[in-house]
Amino acid sequence: MYVSREPILQVKNLKTYFYTEDGVIKAVDGVSFELYKGETLGIVGESGSGKSVTSLTIMRLLDEKAKIESGEILFKGKDLLKISEEEMRKIRGNDIAMIFQEPMVALNPVYTIGDQIMEAIILHQKVKESEARKIAIDLLRKVGIPEPEKRVDQYPHQLSGGMRQRAMIAMALSCRPQILIADEPTTALDVTIQAQILELMKELQREYGMALIMITHDMGVIAETADRVAVMYAGRVVEYGTVDEIFKNPKHPYTYALLSSIPRLDVEDQELKSIPGTVPDPLNFPSGCRFHPRCEFAREECKNLDPKLFEVSPSHYTACPFYGVLENVGVK
């Protein structure tokens, strides 16, 4: 696939905190990455690592408790954090679209699928209702929904989970966005349906030439879809590189441990590595490298490390300055 070196989206040192009654949650704490035209960037991490908050920050869809402390989100050079809500609305759904994890709850139960798809078309493309309906039916056909003329007038509860996610995709693609953010689009689906949806998304991405941010906790989905990967842990990107670099030559102990702790279909008599301890409490992230209490290579300095990325190669970065220790261990 052709991937340009021209970034369409640049996230720089983004910090999004939640001010709750129990304290401050530093959900996203200095995240940076680029998204190039036409590529797929995978964001992977366990639950609570800040993946969804990152994507909602880009869309500026956070609730009132959240505060964007600092950072820039440059979309084609324009900082999305500086423009007015009015301007942002013109970008949402039109230039940057998003699909969510739970197709069961992400569609409004009291309006038809068609109505919900047409809404965005009418809004952004300024076409008449009859025209929008035609476009909606075409989209439904394109995302593989059988009998689109009939389905367009059905309500979400009349569709299966897989069909609803297809409808969500149709809705997101209705204005041919340049960026699609997919937040765990297949997590709620069965594997055979997941395979259908991933295939569909790949096809559509190729056809529309859009850039895709694929957010998931599933390393398999990342290997399957992503060109480049950002691995998140406790609100920070700990490793960032091409999919080959991340999977074959991980340079952060967390990535390494994660890869060796997933049961794999393609490996015989695998010994599963366990990452000790628990996922850190977001109200009380560890100091320094936030992975240090669980890291088998941790040393005293790790408790006071500055959060920054070290360059392994021009395309590969890690937050661990001691990544050399991984030379000798190898994955698997």
Binding site: L61, D63, R92, G93, F100, V105, A106, N108, Y111, E119
Partner: peptide, 22 residues
């Protein structure tokens, strides 16, 4: 707080439409 409200906002709908319609 429902996800479909977020979906509606993600479409770029005006807050008035989000409230009154969705």
């Amino acid at each position: 707080n429902k996800e479909y409200i977020r979906t509606a906002r993600a479409k770029g709908l005006d807050e008035k439409v989000v409230i009154n319609k969705h």
